Simulated assay, not measured.
Amino acid sequence: MKQTMKREFLLAFLALSSACLTPYVWAQNPPKVAVTDLAYTRAVSQYFEAGTYSEKASLNANRNSVTASYSGSGTYVAGKYSYLEQRELRSFTNDIKGQLIQGTTFRLVQGKGFDAGDPQPTKAEQALQQLQTGKMAQPVRQPEVNDIIARIKKGEFSGADYVLFGQLSSIEFRDQLTPIQGTSSSSHQFLLDLLADFSLINTKTLEIKAAFSAQGNGNDTKLLSARGDLVPPNRAKVMRETSQSLSRSVYEQLAAQMGMDAPMSQRLRPAQSGVTVPAGQAQPAAAEQVLILR
């Protein structure tokens, strides 16, 4: 009984010591971290046509007879082809890198972009080849953007001790026009909501050191003087706010899971109930009123 309690105490002590020493060790020997662009997969459909056709005709006529001949052949294939496109969203990660540089001792290294492999022949080209040669083209296996283990072993993040891998889960633009009761004005909101999953992976052991979901959002609100009037939204502002809020969420959760500087995480939160926004960070924007003169 005493040996069991002693062993459990020793394991608990080692776990606590490891958690406490991690920030210190990382401060003395900062790890190199590569931040990937957000990976995504989407379904794509395309219409295709393929066909071959040859035709011959002849006509011979004289006073006594008329001779005609005709020969023709043709094949035709058409349809709709669906496949999954794998890419990286080259936005929304620069602010994450900035937060890591500002709030941690990590050294950031630039990894290679995702290599999607050689372009595949289109479905129309595959069907045409089959019609002409009688052989079906075998599709070539393409690299997978979500196979981060294969990408690490391939050397896309050479020199990095850790990879912060992000996968896009959901991205949605919303356009809302809301009449304001008792007035002839209306509120026009353009919003962007983004959700992504992140994993911090050790490139040597392939161990997952942290895993979490992070959300970012931004909006552009305008007050219109008359219902029915529309003003183009400021898309750049919305995307910038989304990127900044996503980076704050990523940093806070990474700091909590890795036992990093908690006060820094508090200082990076947006202003609410008396909390001060750090210098250099944009204050929350108020609704912009747009007057349309007639």
Rank of each mutant, 00 (worst) to 15 (best):
129 Q>V: 07
74 G>Q: 01
101 I>R: 13
6 K>R: 08
132 Q>W: 00
8 E>V: 14
67 T>E: 14
205 T>A: 03
64 N>G: 07
264 M>W: 14
141 R>V: 15
170 S>P: 01
151 R>F: 02
35 V>L: 04
227 R>A: 07
36 T>S: 13
46 Q>L: 11
58 S>R: 07
2 K>W: 13
138 Q>N: 07
194 L>I: 14
182 G>N: 05
80 K>G: 03
290 V>T: 04
46 Q>P: 01
47 Y>K: 07
29 N>Q: 06
212 F>W: 12
149 I>W: 09
218 G>R: 02
195 L>T: 13
47 Y>C: 04
276 T>A: 15
10 L>E: 11
261 D>Y: 08
93 T>L: 01
175 D>H: 09
162 Y>M: 00
47 Y>R: 13
247 S>P: 10
261 D>A: 07
35 V>I: 14
266 Q>C: 06
67 T>A: 11
56 K>M: 09
182 G>E: 12
192 L>R: 08
146 N>Q: 14
9 F>I: 12
214 A>H: 09
267 R>P: 00
42 R>M: 04
82 S>W: 06
79 G>Q: 04
123 K>D: 02
212 F>N: 06
14 L>G: 12
15 A>T: 09
134 G>C: 06
174 R>Q: 13
70 Y>W: 08
284 P>V: 08
14 L>I: 10
238 V>N: 02
221 T>K: 04
7 R>D: 15
192 L>A: 03
22 T>V: 12
241 E>Q: 15
207 E>S: 10
244 Q>Y: 04
119 P>E: 13
114 F>L: 01
182 G>W: 06
24 Y>Q: 15
266 Q>N: 13
28 Q>H: 10
242 T>E: 05
57 A>D: 15
46 Q>F: 05
175 D>L: 06
17 S>R: 14
30 P>K: 02
57 A>G: 11
168 L>M: 11
82 S>I: 08
197 D>E: 10
149 I>M: 10
135 K>L: 09
256 A>N: 09
71 S>L: 05
148 I>Y: 04
213 S>N: 11
209 K>D: 10
6 K>D: 13
10 L>Q: 13
258 M>K: 03
204 K>Y: 06
125 E>G: 01
21 L>E: 09
244 Q>W: 02
215 Q>L: 01
130 Q>L: 11
284 P>N: 10
217 N>P: 02
3 Q>N: 01
95 D>P: 03
156 E>N: 07
185 S>I: 01
278 P>S: 07
109 V>E: 03
31 P>L: 00
38 L>E: 05
280 G>T: 11
268 L>A: 13
62 N>I: 04
165 F>H: 10
111 G>W: 00
62 N>C: 03
72 G>L: 00
117 G>P: 03
37 D>F: 08
278 P>C: 06
56 K>N: 14
130 Q>W: 03
289 Q>L: 05
102 Q>D: 08
86 Q>P: 03
186 S>I: 06
110 Q>L: 10
167 Q>C: 07
128 L>H: 03
160 A>H: 05
231 V>A: 12
32 K>D: 02
288 E>D: 06
64 N>L: 11
93 T>C: 06
147 D>A: 14
257 Q>H: 03
291 L>D: 15
89 L>D: 05
89 L>K: 11
